[in-house]
Design a binder for these strands. Sequence first.
DNA 1: GCGACAG
DNA 2: ATCTTGTCGC
Length: 214
Amino acid sequence: MLPSASELVQKQRKLSRRVVVEDDLPAAIRTVAGVDAAFPEGGGLTRAAAVLMSYPGLETLDQAVAEQPTRLPYIPGLLSFRELPAVLAALERLSSEPDLVLCDGQGIAHPRRFGVACHLGVETGLCTIGVGKSRLCGQAEEPDRQRGAESLLRDGEEVIGSVLRTRTAVRPVFVSSGHRVSLQTATRLVLECTPRFRLPEPIRAADRLAGTRD
DNA sequence: GCGACAG
DNA sequence: ATCTTGTCGC
């Protein structure tokens, strides 16, 4: 029996009270992990990957994969319940705990301010940042054309994230606090983890590792 | 009722 | 996310 959507929404409302959006990171960040999930077998299997890299050098230190039967369908706003179990399993298989985790998806830039990055952070206590390839909610302003340009993502008067151009003339990404990282710090760290492509290196590596081509 | 809708 | 071939461009 699957949990109902309203039931999961209530869990989000409860867990969201534990999210910390102020900076509370290690004195020195030495490692950053990227996590992502893929759904092979026509969606029947969830395969999560976690890649640990040095920071700021971004050299790969370790990587892990975890597979589980898929339990829930994708429902906008409830993504974390579908992906988190496998992501947690992959993270636990890393040789060491990362100082920071970059997630594929939103942090507080979510209808109930509880995207996958927040959920992962609250469950593990780790510092997390949400990096979405597209917008879930809020009004986005177009940042300037060059790499490093950013604008704010707002929901009414509330600032919920930043729209960051990680590569000149390329579609921007949506950055938001996950847990224990402020928006300002998150935006800076994401740019520093994105020296070459549109997405941060740790997330790209996790993407490839989880990829549906075995 | 209508439009929007991470991965 | 996944289903899918070739093609344009650096």
